[in-house]
Nucleic acid binder design. Structure first.
Lengths: 246, 246
DNA sequence: GCGACGGGTGTGGTCTGACCACAGTACACG
DNA sequence: CGTGTACTGTGGTCAGACCACACCCGTCGC
């Protein structure tokens, strides 16, 4: 019978996934103890641990030692962490070209701001505006500015309310964090760039507030493409790249 | 010193990530044997295995027992698997609402076809056209049709050449595979729906071939929103959802 | 009666050692 | 020279042990 030869940790993973899909497990619930899970499924505890480790990295569970209500493995379903780890490692292993990461981020963020501009209430942008003010503080280092920049762009995704986009954007951003930092350090005049970026940020928010979807989209595209070109010596265009046999 | 109390498997993961970033490890390379890795890092073999299991699920390595060049853990960087597992489990754990998954897919696919239509050569669509013909075969079951449908939509992403979008689309698709199947089975007239879907597919490809980005985008939006509404009894709109207090 | 203290208990985290199945390799044998 | 067969090293799994931790509850002292 094919499929019976699954590895032990896969059996555990599938069992937990089935419990999630059937509703036997829901966010907030505790998983059975590792030893109980192992005994119940007829596998060793180490196999259970391998499966739980995967679930933890994927952001599905949170584990804590000790005793009491907060101990054990708890279903949390926080997608951000898992997405970040996945994207970061894929970029590190050269499975994801940096340019593709930036392009995807561009597509998603452009769609997000266009939707925000089209939506009636721009109530979700309070956090974004706060971050813009924080980025105006004098004496910010490149690293501090970039951290706020990350939060700002992420706050736009959060304002959309779309969990998938929020998590994906967070992952994409963390994947290219190292490149963004290296690029910023190589700039000739950081203060000029910082001023320009801050102005572009306010322009994006202004376009959203003005309920101008296409203007917001265009400004996001210019913002991201411009920064990419400035830090990479070559544009982001030529999309899709290299299809023909040359 | 904070940070020193990392768990053992995290040490392994960070070590491998550092090796990837520094170039000491590249796609195609073999990882050291589990026992050697454990000895070298001063951790137990079980901790090494937990880290490798994570890398395997994330699609970074492929493991094989036995001996010879193909055995051991090899860096592969195949993002599809990891993305699928992540999205599927997050949907199962209710971290990703199905509507958000569909919306994200809509955004990405709309951008993909628009770009494909804008690009000069539509050479990458040969596979897509082949799938369209396969979907015209009479007597296809719902499941067979949906499998081809998945391949068709994925082939569009592949044609874009963007690794991140391709992997993300594959993950999104696998996350909602169960819902798509359940929705198809509940339809009143499958043959009518199938005919309509096939027509819409050809319309999308035609728009790309005609180099009409906005038409292609509009047809993709209509295609996905229409199918969602048909199988869910409520539209995909109201985006972003529920920001206000109420 | 009430508070503080201490062991008991169960949790995840880790290591060790052992065994298995597997696949390639090298060596001995015909 | 060809053909097996034993060897070696790999991942896969299990069992058992120990640790640190955090809660729980009973006891003790006030």
């Amino acid at each position: 019978m094919p499929g019976t030869d699954r590895r032990a940790w896969e059996v555990v993973l599938e069992s937990i996934e089935a419990d999630l899909l059937s509703g036997r497990l829901s966010p907030g619930d505790h998983l059975p103890a590792e030893r109980a899970l192992a005994a119940g499924l007829g596998v060793g505890r180490s196999s259970v641990r391998e499966a739980l480790r995967v679930l933890e990295v994927l952001g599905l569970i949170r584990t804590a030692a000790g005793s009491g209500p907060s101990a054990g493995a708890i279903i949390v379903a926080l997608p951000g962490g898992g997405m970040s780890a996945l994207m970061r490692l894929q970029v590190a292993a050269q499975g994801f070209p940096v340019a593709d990461v930036v392009k995807t981020r561009l597509i998603l963020e452009a769609a997000v701001v266009a939707e925000l501009a089209g939506a009636a209430g721009a109530a979700g942008l309070a956090g974004s505006a706060q971050l813009l003010d924080a980025m105006d503080a004098p004496g910010l280092t490149e690293a501090e500015f970039l951290a706020l920049d990350t939060q700002f762009h992420l706050s736009l995704a959060t304002a959309s309310g779309n969990q998938v986009i929020t998590a994906t954007m967070a992952g994409l951003r963390s994947a290219i964090e190292g490149y963004a930092r290296a690029g910023a350090l190589g700039l000739a005049s950081w203060s000029e760039t910082s001023a320009r970026l801050r102005g572009e940020h306010r322009g994006i928010v202004a376009a959203i507030d003005a309920a101008e979807p296409e203007l917001a989209r265009a400004r996001v595209v210019a913002h991201i493409e411009g920064y990419y070109a400035e830090t990479h010596d070559h544009p982001l265009h030529a999309w899709p790249p290299a299809l023909g046999p040359t």
